[in-house]
Design a protein around this nucleic acid. Structure first.
Lengths: 169, 169
DNA sequence: CACCCTTTCTGGAGTAAGTCAAGAAAACGA
DNA sequence: TCGTTTTCTTGACTTACTCCAGAAAGGGTG
């Protein structure tokens, strides 16, 4: 079954096709096999890349064009069914956990991404002090670091010689 | 002088070549014309893209390879003389303001990037509640929105129909 | 100042992650 | 069952870089 990754039971893991159909229709999107397959997979495997989704969907449906996968991911993201995360230097990842504004923990080496439910210190006020006239509609927080695997594999700097900024705001 | 952009007096705008030479040497980097030109330009024009830097440096030096500009930007970033910002969906931007961990305001439409000195509410504690075993060394905050120009040009959604998440953590 | 060893720059090919476009094939309301 | 509209397929193209080999400087040494 291809590159099966630890199938975490996500918030939406109980999505059955019937459920998904409704959500697609509600979003004004037609129900198609590629869409059901993509949404189901992303739902069960948060933070997958387009490439991983493509592989998985092909396993299930036999053959789906790369473009179709991108179209599905884009349409669903636009419709609010998916959320796209684009960590600097890594391909985009997708998740079905939307509607709350949680944040992410990203491994600098392998790109592994995990959710961070909220920040300690109870909802710090994430408003910029000066918006320079911008109309701000989202505050995105990414915590950069090294996942256990990459650190153990020596892909993380041992001496903290990297960018020494004490790293916190 | 090419695409001259509002030359803001940055924190490091007073960098004179002599000064830059020292900083390069201190970082263990050789002093070369491309490096002086790149650093000077970025210093005076925070948040420029590699492409903009290339254009500007060519204006000044006559001819510099694309690769040289990338090499300089990468070497200086690695050495801690520059900071790279990579807003999702936009090419990387560079700045000389390092050593403090300020954040950024990015326009979804044109990628225009501005500094946010700090968050109101005095240094919210930006530590994830659960690091999943990750060794975190940086918390990055990006405020997404629409710059005045793009909003006026109608490139921003008028109804807040976009991703309605109330946008704050 | 001349030399030599590195580091850096040049020029050109190559790559990853997508996007664009035209036509074929499906969805689904009537 | 039809007709319209959306979606999928195929395949070229793009953007923002990186990789490579060789030429051209830095700059410490004698």
């Amino acid at each position: 079954m291809g590159p099966v990754m630890t199938p975490r039971t996500s918030t939406y893991a109980q999505d059955q096709p019937a459920d998904l159909r409704q959500r697609l229709r509600a979003a004004g999107l037609r129900v198609t096999a590629p869409r059901l397959a993509v949404l189901t997979w992303v739902s069960d495997h948060p933070h997958v890349t387009a490439d991983e989704v493509t592989t998985a969907v092909r396993e299930r449906l036999g053959s789906v064009s790369t473009q179709a996968v991108y179209d599905v991911l884009n349409a669903c993201t636009r419709a609010g069914l998916l959320r796209r995360i684009e960590p600097a230097g890594h391909p985009a990842r997708f998740e079905t956990r939307i509607g709350d504004n949680h944040h992410h923990l990203v491994c600098r080496a392998c790109g592994r991404t995990e959710d961070v439910d909220c920040l300690v210190g109870a909802r710090p006020c994430l408003d910029p002090s000066d918006t320079s006239g911008f109309e701000v509609d989202e505050a995105e927080v990414v915590f950069w670091g090294w996942c256990p695997d990459c650190r153990d594999a020596g892909r993380a700097p041992t001496t903290r010689s990297h960018h020494e900024e004490e790293g916190r705001a």
